[in-house]
């Protein structure tokens, strides 16, 4: 599903964000990516989304070789991913429903499937009752669930989350991760970046730890990472 082979990323200003990173994530896995601020976690995500291209090495995601992908194939590739960010990235002028439907409307999905699919995912994240609200009428946790619904609405096999709980109260953060956990149980591969160790410790998932752009450890769960 995800394969990084000797990947390095040096930004144009000379910042070395990743150096010689190799890792792979299989279908159906739930992976936490941890590391201090500035470690290169978001750079890792940007390479996954093909927002950035690696300076060296090979990135393969969902069967696409991102080194060789053509510009006009990128939209198709992005439709095979769901993404959520720390800052939600909702459109303030649109209702919850429209924010979610937006992802389908702009990718040529027929209105009939939009009308079926949007209420379904809103139900999934527990926001069916707030469909007509606007983002600023929701709590941070709810806004992130809207973003999650948008990421899931076209049923992607891979869900990527960059610090999804970074702007949310701790109790609500737990809810989000539990939701991701449920989604993973239904077969979706999940990659979640976070630096909240308590959250990681609660779930027995694989943990990839990055620091200064390099892989520090790759453990089956938080405990073994902690000991190792």
């Amino acid at each position: 599903m995800i394969e990084f082979t000797n990947v390095s990323k040096v930004y144009e200003n000379g910042t070395k964000a990743l150096s010689n990173l190799s890792l792979s994530v299989d279908k159906g896995e739930f992976v936490f990516v941890v590391g201090p601020s500035g470690a290169g976690k978001s750079t890792f995500i940007k390479l996954l989304l093909r927002e950035e291209t690696p300076t060296k090495g090979i990135v393969k995601v969902n069967g696409y070789n991102l080194n060789k992908i053509k510009k006009r194939q990128i939209p198709q590739f992005r439709r095979s991913l769901g993404v959520v960010f720390q800052d939600f990235r909702l459109i303030p002028q649109m209702t919850v429903y429209d924010n979610v439907a937006f992802a389908l409307r702009v990718t040529n999905v027929a209105s009939r499937s939009i009308r079926q699919r949007v209420p379904y995912v809103l139900g999934l994240v527990g926001l069916a009752a707030k469909a007509r609200n606007y983002p600023d009428q929701l709590s941070g946790g709810e806004q992130q669930r809207v973003a999650l619904a948008r990421a899931l609405v076209n049923n992607p096999p891979l869900l990527i989350a960059d610090e999804p709980t970074g702007n949310i109260d701790p109790e609500l953060s737990l809810e989000i991760v539990e939701l991701l956990n449920e989604i993973n149980k239904c077969g979706t591969t999940v990659v979640m970046v976070t630096h909240e160790h308590e959250l990681v410790a609660r779930f027995g998932h694989r943990v990839i730890s990055i620091d200064h752009g390099s892989l520090v450890s790759d453990a089956d769960e938080w405990g073994s990472f902690y000991e190792g």
Binding site: R72, P75, R78, R79, V83, R89, F102, V106
Partner: peptide, 17 residues
């Protein structure tokens, strides 16, 4: 521009954008 960046993220084509 926010909408445009989200459109890119969810895989809207350039023509569509």
């Amino acid at each position: 521009r926010k909408e445009i960046s989200i459109m890119r993220l969810v895989g809207a084509t350039n023509t569509f954008i």
